[in-house]
């Protein structure tokens, strides 16, 4: 069985999710801090999501050529939405009383964001991260078409040579990966937000 494909897939997912989190948070926070451009940011992210992932990869391949970079960039573009949207919504949803108290105590804009608004909003932001990470597992499957490797290769090959075992192996590996990822993040979430979950 092609175990190396499993590791490859995991690498794609982790790299993709890592970049998604960084860019997603940056965009979400920018949208919150600059209401003037928030619409533009949210709209762009929405549009990215409506392009079929296969098409996104195709276009990216023209720009970056085949390979893992293309897959990772595609995954980032495709799974930004939940993180950006949740970050923006959650930060806007922090109670006005808490925001007013923070200003009234004499906190600077950055201090407020880092020590009050972001931590208070984090449970919802984290949900976005969780959704995005789990989706990215299935998005990475399309990587096979642009030479990115991963379990997409296994599935594709299984279909091509009509090998049921291979197809089932690929499918099961993807499912287990998704379930493990979700449970792991679930545990992290419970640990992080012990007091706010009560």
């Amino acid at each position: 069985m092609p175990w190396n494909r499993v590791w490859e897939h995991l690498f794609l997912v982790l790299a993709g999710s890592g970049f998604t989190i960084i860019f997603g948070l940056a965009l979400g926070i920018t949208a919150y801090l600059c209401p003037k451009i928030s619409k533009a940011i949210l709209w762009s992210v929405d549009v990215l999501q409506t392009i079929p992932s296969l098409a996104t990869l195709g276009i990216l391949m023209v720009l970056f050529g085949g390979g893992k970079t293309t897959v990772i960039v595609g995954m980032v573009l495709y799974s930004l939405l939940p993180i950006v949207r949740n970050t923006h919504t959650a930060l806007n949803g922090v109670s006005p009383a808490v925001k007013e108290a923070a200003i009234g105590m004499g906190m600077s804009r950055l201090y407020r964001l880092v020590f009050v608004e972001f931590p208070v909003a984090f449970p919802i932001i984290f949900t976005g991260i969780r959704i995005s990470a789990v989706t990215s597992i299935s998005v990475a499957v399309f990587g096979t078409f642009v030479g990115g490797g991963g379990l997409g290769d296994t599935l594709y090959r299984g279909i091509y040579i009509q090998n049921m075992k291979l197809i089932l192996f690929g499918t099961a590996a993807l499912m287990v990966m998704a379930i493990l990822m979700d449970s792991l993040l679930n545990v992290v979430e419970k640990r992080l937000f012990k007091h706010s979950m009560k």
């Binding site: 109670s95 808490v98 108290a101 009234g104 004499g106 009050v116 931590p119 208070v120």
Partner: peptide, 30 residues
């Protein structure tokens, strides 16, 4: 304005304690 506010206590009707901080941390904000 930020330095000014640190020297003026402020209490509001909606309380506005920071939900991510313990009582001790809330008190120690300023």
């Amino acid at each position: 304005p930020e330095k000014l506010r640190r020297n003026i206590g402020y209490v509001i009707q909606q309380i506005g304690l920071f939900p991510n901080m313990t009582v001790e941390e809330n008190i120690c904000v300023v």
